[in-house]
């Protein structure tokens, strides 16, 4: 099939950038979206032009690198997939496709479709961990965790930190991402000791990094390639409210 691509081209962080139009001819419906871009880049290189820079790593839908908004939708039109798992059979001959990077103040564009997602790491560093002594590994199942709790934590842990939730959010809020980490750890016994400190530090980091505030649009959940539910945001709000209650130790 033959397609027309409108791709965001930006030389570097300081460049203004603009959409450029490229033909993509003879694209096989079996290709993934990234393979289609590889083909286009091949052509660009052969004709002496600068190839389109885009992030990619695992190409099996689990690394969360491919930060592309395709026709206004993060990771393209197929629900629950990353760009590498989006295949060209989803498109028809003659389609026009707009490809843009994530857009948020906290995600500055580095080049073309590549954004800097360090701000998500900063949120993680603020509290997305459990402190523990190093040393011998605990026996498996020494600490019993009920199956529903384990499942709940696992659902939250599915987040791959790609940033689609922020790209889709009209406020560029990182609440779904943060809530997945807060909920996962708050549900498990290992995470409970630091639950109060964590929710306060991580939500503060959201603002410090220049993300917006959550106003319950739920665009994040709809755009998430891993189907992270906004119920985790409700859980984060509960965890925040808990910080206002006295603890049993009187703190």
């Amino acid at each position: 099939m033959d397609l027309t691509l409108h791709v965001w081209r930006q030389k570097g962080p300081q460049d203004k950038g603009k959409l450029e139009t490229y033909p993509a001819k003879g694209i096989s419906s079996d290709m993934s979206f990234l393979e289609m871009l590889d083909e286009v880049n091949d052509g660009l290189i052969k004709s002496g032009q600068e190839p389109i820079a885009f992030d990619h790593d695992c190409r099996e839908g689990i690394c969360g690198m491919c930060s592309q908004v395709i026709n206004g939708r993060p990771h393209g039109k197929q629900e629950g997939t990353t760009v590498c798992q989006l295949h060209m059979r989803q498109y028809n001959d003659g389609d026009e496709i707009f490809i843009e990077p994530w857009r948020a103040k906290a995600f500055p564009v580095q080049k073309d479709l590549i954004v800097d997602r360090t701000s998500l790491d900063v949120i993680m560093q603020a509290g997305g961990y459990v402190s523990c002594h190093t040393g011998g590994v605990d026996d498996a199942n020494a600490l019993l965790i009920p199956k529903p709790t384990a499942d709940y934590a696992m659902d939250a842990a599915e987040c791959i930190g790609c940033g689609a939730c922020i790209a889709a959010c009209p406020n560029s809020s990182a609440m779904l991402f943060t809530s997945a980490k807060v909920a996962q750890l708050a549900a498990l016994p290992q995470g409970k000791p630091e639950a109060r400190k964590r929710v306060l530090a991580m939500t503060q980091a959201i603002l410090d990094e220049g993300f917006g505030n959550c106003t319950n649009h739920y665009e994040c959940e709809a755009a998430c390639p891993k189907g992270i539910s906004v119920k985790f945001i409700a859980k984060l709000n509960r965890e925040y409210l808990k910080t206002m209650m006295p603890t049993s130790t009187g703190a």
Partner: peptide, 24 residues
């Protein structure tokens, strides 16, 4: 105002998935 400052650039193709006119 904070939310607007967090979203300085808009997309060339802007699409809403589930949000409402009311929420926006």
């Amino acid at each position: 105002l904070e939310n607007r400052a967090a979203t300085p650039d808009s997309y060339a193709v802007q699409k809403s998935l589930v949000t409402t006119f009311s929420a926006k």
